[in-house]
């Protein structure tokens, strides 16, 4: 048998607690940032002032067209030159959040576009101020519509979080690489780490699909 069960059991607790904890921190931090930032980006892109909507749109397109990995490099290596010092994990969370904000902003945009026109007209008929039209009428409906797609991006952020291991964050994959390099044997840690991702991501995406169907009806 090539598979070393003893070693697997030895490394399993570490991967389950320490590694998974960092992965979850990165995922949740990145997701919260992406969801909040994405909403602001979506709103700014709808601004009637072109000197706001155009640059925000261009920056968001640019972020979507370039790899997360390179953006992480920039945050990790270049930001300290400007006097911004952060831990690798914080850098990673910001990277994930900013990168996925460019995706979630599109989700919100579709959600806002999906709010029936009558809602806008009713708000005008009631002489609701523009701010309250957004806060009280449009956004609650738009965000509700966006929830399933945002859930998909939560899973996507979870799956992409291993990229942080490249900037020395010790998440599940980072830890698996470390453990593997100690014995120069990657089979067990990598397989276990990969299985973690499968075991969490597949049920999560099934759950989201179910939610999607419920919100549809």
């Amino acid at each position: 048998m090539i598979w070393d069960w003893d070693w697997t059991l030895e490394i399993l607790p570490g991967l389950l607690t320490q590694g998974l904890l960092v992965t979850l921190q990165a995922t949740l931090g990145g997701a919260v940032l992406a969801f909040v930032l994405g909403l602001f980006v979506a709103l700014l892109r709808r601004s009637r002032r072109p000197y706001i909507s155009r640059p925000v749109g261009a920056i968001s397109e640019f972020i979507r067209g370039t790899p997360l990995l390179v953006q992480l490099f920039v945050l990790y290596y270049v930001m300290p030159d400007f006097g911004v010092r952060m831990t690798a994990l914080t850098t990673g969370i910001i990277g994930l959040g900013v990168h996925y904000a460019s995706y979630t902003s599109e989700v919100y945009r579709a959600g806002i576009d999906g709010v029936p026109k009558g809602q806008w007209e009713a708000a005008i008929a009631l002489n609701l101020p523009r701010r309250w039209t957004w806060i009280g009428v449009i956004l609650p409906q738009a965000v509700r519509r966006s929830l399933p797609a945002l859930g998909n991006y939560l899973v996507a952020i979870f799956k992409e979080s291993p990229q942080l291991s490249v900037i020395t964050v010790v998440d599940v994959i980072g830890l698996a690489r470390e453990l593997g390099s100690e014995r120069f044997r990657y089979l067990e840690p990598m397989t276990v780490a990969g299985l973690f991702f499968l075991l969490i991501a597949i049920p999560a995406s099934i759950l989201i699909r179910r939610m999607e169907r419920r919100l549809d009806t």
Partner: peptide
């Protein structure tokens, strides 16, 4: 489809490159 969408490219890459040769 579920299997390959359940993990990211990086994880699959590491597995193919580091783990599979042993197996």
């Amino acid at each position: 489809m579920e299997f390959f969408r359940g993990t990211s490219v990086l994880v699959q890459l590491f597995w193919l490159f580091y783990a599979m040769p042993l197996l």
